[in-house]
């Protein structure tokens, strides 16, 4: 049963890219109230905990392609995500003080 977990047999983004950018920026909007470092941390955690890996992959691919339309803090946070992709501990929500 485990052979195809996490893999997609279909090409292309899992979700319409424009929509993905809107969603990511909305999260960015929320964290705008926080100081930059906590905002990055919070954004990263949110994406890590709530987003299907295919959505995260699509976001990262879009960033690699220039990240058109994405807020700067989203781009920074997403990079953090990539750096620590191996972290599986699953931290919920808000950045710590």
């Amino acid at each position: 049963m485990a052979e195809s977990i996490g893999t997609a047999n279909v090409e292309g983004e899992v979700i319409d890219l424009d929509h993905l950018v809107v969603m990511a920026n909305q999260i960015g909007d929320f964290f705008a109230s926080y100081p930059p470092e906590r905002a990055r941390e919070g954004l990263r955690n949110h994406l890590r905990t709530y987003w299907d890996p295919r959505m995260r992959t699509a976001l990262l691919e879009h960033i690699d392609a220039g990240g058109d339309g994405l807020q700067e803090r989203v781009i920074e946070a997403a990079r953090l995500l990539r750096d620590r992709e191996s972290d599986k501990s699953g931290y919920y929500g808000p950045p710590k003080a």
């Binding site: 195809s4 977990i5 996490g6 893999t7 997609a8 047999n9 279909v10 295919r54």
Partner: peptide, 9 residues
């Protein structure tokens, strides 16, 4: 469907 499009489909 899973065989065709993947487990996550």
């Amino acid at each position: 469907v899973q065989a065709t499009y993947g487990r996550g489909s």
